[in-house]
């Protein structure tokens, strides 16, 4: 059986908020390393990979591998009943029909108990190769979100170029064009506010802004985001949590 306790409900609430517009039904794979999820969107253009490691749980017990087939819209309805600061306990049997969720406030005088029906989801897992990326950019997640939102008002796609000058996001649309260039600017006192760029080789790729704007819904998970790019391979965007991560992969646009 599974028994997993989070000190703060907000962790799972934020993860679900971050991915629910990308995937609808997915398996939460529970095993002795924690709770993992890998799912592609319907068009097979984007993939989300999530890992909540056991260290992030106040209590974690999972004797066997258990796949929890969850509809994320339904899960979000249940999670709405949890206050951010509530302690959350997830429980499931070995071959579960339902996931039990218990929310307890810090004063210990309210216990909310919910059951979420589970579904059988036959999900293909993709093998993601280890990649040495040509460019890796670490920057404030709020700034990345702003850039994606601003450019998405002008165009459907963005060209991302990483050179020794910096990283440039540019787009062209019906009403005009726009570009934002970020230069390396580490912040010694507050590293989460700085921008660092590791460049092995120049990279130039084009991506759909609709997906990038969608990924940015994970900004609440981390003050920083890491963007990894290589020519002709999917982009990796990672939001690292204290004990886990949410990663998004996006296939580039191809051709002229």
């Amino acid at each position: 059986m599974l028994e997993a306790r989070l000190e703060q409900s907000s962790v799972l609430k934020k993860v679900v908020d971050a991915i629910k517009d990308l995937v609808q039904d997915c398996n939460f794979d529970c095993n002795d390393s924690g709770i993992q999820l890998q799912a592609m969107d319907n068009s097979h253009v984007a993939l989300v990979a999530m890992h909540l490691k056991t260290e992030g749980f106040a209590l974690y017990r999972c004797d066997r591998n258990i796949a929890l087939g969850i509809n994320l819209v339904s899960l979000q309805k249940v999670l709405r009943a949890a206050q951010n600061e509530d302690v959350m306990t997830l429980k499931a049997e070995d071959s579960p029909d339902a996931l039990s969720l218990v929310f307890e406030n810090s004063e210990n005088d309210r216990i909310s108990e919910y059951d979420l029906k589970l579904m059988d989801i036959d999900q293909e897992h993709l093998g993601i190769p280890e990649t040495e990326y040509g460019a890796t950019v670490k920057m404030p997640s709020a700034e990345f979100q702003r850039i994606c939102r601003d450019l998405s008002l002008l165009s459907e796609s963005v060209a991302i170029e990483a050179t020794k000058e910096g990283i440039k996001f540019s787009c062209t649309g019906d009403i005009g064009k726009g570009a934002v260039t970020l230069r390396q600017n580490p912040n010694v006192e507050k590293p989460e506010l700085g921008t660092t760029i590791e460049l092995q080789e120049p990279v130039a790729l084009t991506f759909s802004l609709k997906y990038l704007v969608n990924f940015c819904k994970a900004s609440g998970l981390s003050n920083t985001v890491t963007i990894s790019l290589s020519n002709e391979v999917p982009l990796l965007i990672e939001y690292e949590m204290e004990h886990g991560y949410v990663r998004f992969y996006l296939a580039p646009k191809i051709g002229d």
């Binding site: 592609m40 068009s43 097979h44 253009v45 984007a46 993939l47 293909e124 897992h125 993709l126 093998g127 993601i128 190769p129 796609s157 084009t206 759909s208 391979v233 999917p234 992969y249 296939a251 580039p252 646009k253 191809i254 051709g255 002229d256």
Partner: peptide, 14 residues
């Protein structure tokens, strides 16, 4: 105009 690629051409089924 560029076409949107898919992930299945980069990542293999496991």
């Amino acid at each position: 105009k560029r076409a949107q690629g898919t992930l299945t051409s980069y990542f293999g089924s496991r």
